[in-house]
Amino acid sequence: MDTFVNFFLGGFANGAVIALMALALVLVWRSSRVVNFAQVGQAMFTSFVGLTVVDLTGSWILGLVIAIAAGAVLGLIIHFLVMRPVRRADSSGAIIATFGVLIALQALAAMIWGGDPRAYPTPVSYSGITVFGRVIAITPYDIFVIVAMVILVLILTIVLTRTKLGLSMRASAFNPEVARLSGVRVSRMLAAGWIIAGMVGAVAGVLVAPTATLSPNSFDIFLVFAFTAAVIGGLDSLVGAVTFGIGTGLLLSLVTGYSDASNAALVALILLALNLWFKPEGAFNHHKARSV
């Protein structure tokens, strides 16, 4: 029982980060109908920016703030230089373009900061909490990550569903023509999607980096897990991304703990296939399934 609780808690903290990466993917998808492969590259790059600031100033919070700002700027740059021009192309072209951006970002990061893994400090203790004399598999930092995720999801939900910006973004995503006619500046809304996604991704990167390592390729695996979570969740759904992001983290932890690591990815694949068989448009997609 003890062990189960520990697997569960450890998986939950891991899942929170996957959830944030999945959220960033969903945000881009909602605004511009593109699966953004470069997301993990953006998060990695902004984490390096944050780490540089932490190294220079010693302030973790300042590092986070600058990383978020860098995320916004990077999102905007990619939107203007790559995605806006590429919208004329088809969806597979857009996917490939984001893939090209990912390769370029990883190479650029390796040029600037070197390829060796680096440590990202934590703002609070990274040492297991003792409950009734036992150390459990969750640290104050893990709690910090989970709380940060909850706050971020709440803010996003409010922004996207309760503000004019959010409503305009949804309108321009679902029907650009009608939105344009009703006075929404569609292209600005697309840019807003990329900016917000870049910021969310930056937070995810800064939060996950301290628990393992930061290197140009260290987030690659999150691309797979976050994409899986976003797809199962329905790509349009913030709730879906968060639920299945955390679910993926739990699943990986439990399977790794009770059997071994190589089964974890396999179980994830089987569940992905089953889920898509029964819910081809994702579990939390509210749009009507295709009629054919």
Partner: peptide, 25 residues
């Protein structure tokens, strides 16, 4: 070395983007 080693990857990534931009089809 840090620059030389990674330059091909940077160039490759940028080339992919440029081709998609210039020749959508």
């Amino acid at each position: 070395d840090q620059i030389t080693n990674n330059a091909p990857n940077l160039l490759y990534g940028l080339l992919v983007v440029v081709v998609v931009l210039l020749a959508p089809g």
